[in-house]
Amino acid sequence: MSDFCASLWPEESTPDNLMNCSECGLDKHGSRMVWGEGNPDAPIMVLLDNPGAREDRENKPFVCGTRQALQKATNQVGLTVDDLYVTYVLKRKPTKAYNKEKTRQICMNHLKQQLKSKQPKLIVCLGNIAVQAFFQNPEIDVKSLRGKFHDVHGYQTTVAYHPLAVRRRPNLWHLFLEDWKLVAENYFNQIRLS
């Protein structure tokens, strides 16, 4: 991915009333809450499992591998930061063991709040964790759902592999790009029709 220069996308501030949320227990992990990044009013919402590294060891802003792969793919299909808003099932990065099922259930309330306020035209779930949490079905996976659109909670939704899986297994890159082409075609068709 060295031929592509990823950039820091603007981060949306966490709502004041949730800044110190401790309901799920991830606040004890020492990571800060990340509400989302990109364009908060974008028509396409991208859902990941949790925030990745955002600062390096010297606390300087850092573009992690997940964001590099995501930005490279979306850039190649003609989507820009204005078209996309990235958010997470968990709003904090876990740094140690935790009760995954209970924590995801609690944190899904934040996502429901975002969906209600943002009303995206399309949701793209990346990776099995995000897919299973959003579809509310622990038995499904990306492999069986990718390549088509689904109606989930009243939202047009599609899925793709997690960007880190794509980085670790380069043979998935063409499938990842194929799924983003599907997203872009759908999006640009909607623009033409409106």
Score class of each variant (00 low, 15 high):
P15D: 09
D16W: 08
N20W: 09
C21A: 14
C21W: 04
S22H: 12
S22M: 05
C24H: 10
G25Q: 06
G25I: 05
L26N: 06
L26Q: 07
K28N: 12
H29I: 04
H29A: 07
G30D: 01
S31A: 12
S31H: 03
R32Y: 11
W35Y: 13
E37M: 11
G38Y: 03
N39K: 10
P40M: 06
P40I: 06
A42L: 01
P43I: 00
I44E: 07
I44H: 03
L47A: 09
L48R: 00
L48Q: 02
D49V: 04
A53H: 09
R54A: 12
D56P: 05
D56R: 07
R57P: 01
E58L: 12
E58A: 13
K60P: 02
V63S: 06
V63Y: 06
V63N: 11
T66C: 11
T66I: 11
R67L: 15
Q68C: 08
Q68M: 09
L70D: 09
A73G: 12
A73S: 13
T74A: 12
N75T: 13
Q76M: 14
Q76N: 13
G78R: 03
L79A: 04
L79P: 00
T80S: 15
V81F: 01
D82I: 01
D82G: 06
D83Q: 13
Y85W: 10
V86I: 14
V86Y: 01
V86D: 00
T87E: 00
T87G: 00
T87D: 00
V89W: 05
K91V: 14
K91W: 05
K91A: 13
R92I: 03
K93N: 08
P94T: 11
K96Q: 11
A97E: 12
A97Y: 05
N99Q: 14
N99Y: 09
K100R: 15
E101G: 05
E101P: 00
R104K: 11
N109H: 07
L111G: 05
L111I: 10
K112C: 05
Q114G: 02
L115H: 08
L115R: 02
L115M: 10
L115V: 04
S117I: 07
K118H: 13
Q119T: 11
P120W: 04
P120H: 07
K121S: 14
L122K: 00
I123Y: 03
V124L: 13
V124Q: 00
V124N: 02
C125D: 07
C125Y: 04
L126M: 12
G127C: 02
N128D: 15
I129E: 14
A133M: 00
A133H: 02
F134L: 08
Q136R: 09
N137C: 10
V142H: 01
K143N: 12
R146H: 12
G147L: 08
